[in-house]
């Protein structure tokens, strides 16, 4: 029986893998790393890519879109991101959140318009109905 070490792969919203493995391979930011039991404590960022764990001589694969790999004497933890993160992408979503807020501030006017439009629609529909009724009355 080969030596094993406990591995937890967790992301912010779920636990992806947890169990005893013989080795872990991951693509760290400075290159591919392979971690076996009794590795020295290490902390590194991960690139988007696959994480492989070796269990009973067989490999299991997981995809992570970046994250952090932490190696402690008794446990290895991978804190995975849930989406591919890049500074410009983050920037874009921040701008979007700002724009959304500005839009919703202006929207209080737009909401009134919506209510007004609905009232007009109801009025027009009532008119149409009465016209239709009148026409029916004429033909009969």
């Amino acid at each position: 029986m080969a030596m094993t070490i406990h591995v937890d792969i967790v992301s912010a919203d779920t636990s992806i893998y947890s169990g005893l493995v013989e080795a872990v391979f991951a693509s760290a930011i400075m290159g591919e790393v392979g971690i076996y039991p009794r590795h020295t404590p290490m902390l590194t960022r991960l690139k988007p890519g696959e994480v492989r764990v070796l269990v009973d001589g067989k490999e299991e694969q997981f995809y992570v879109s970046g994250g952090i790999l932490e190696v402690q004497p008794s446990i290895i933890t991978i804190l995975a991101d849930t989406a591919v993160r890049a500074d410009d992408l983050d920037e874009a979503s921040a701008l979007e959140a700002k724009a959304d807020a500005e839009r919703s501030l202006k929207d209080s006017g737009a909401k009134l318009d919506y209510a007004e439009a609905q009232a007009k629609l109801a009025e027009a529909m009532a008119q149409l109905r009465s016209i239709e009724r009148m026409r029916k009355g004429n033909t009969h």
């Binding site: 849930t82 920037e91 959140a97 959304d100 919703s104």
Partner: peptide, 29 residues
């Protein structure tokens, strides 16, 4: 939005099971 405070960012329509990355923008602001 109705109050005289400075609204700098927002995230809406997250649904019942929001994903962490849907909040990135609002937090980053």
């Amino acid at each position: 939005g109705r109050l005289p405070v400075n609204l700098t960012g927002q995230a809406v329509q997250l649904g019942d099971a929001p994903r962490p990355h849907e909040l990135i923008g609002a937090v980053k602001v």
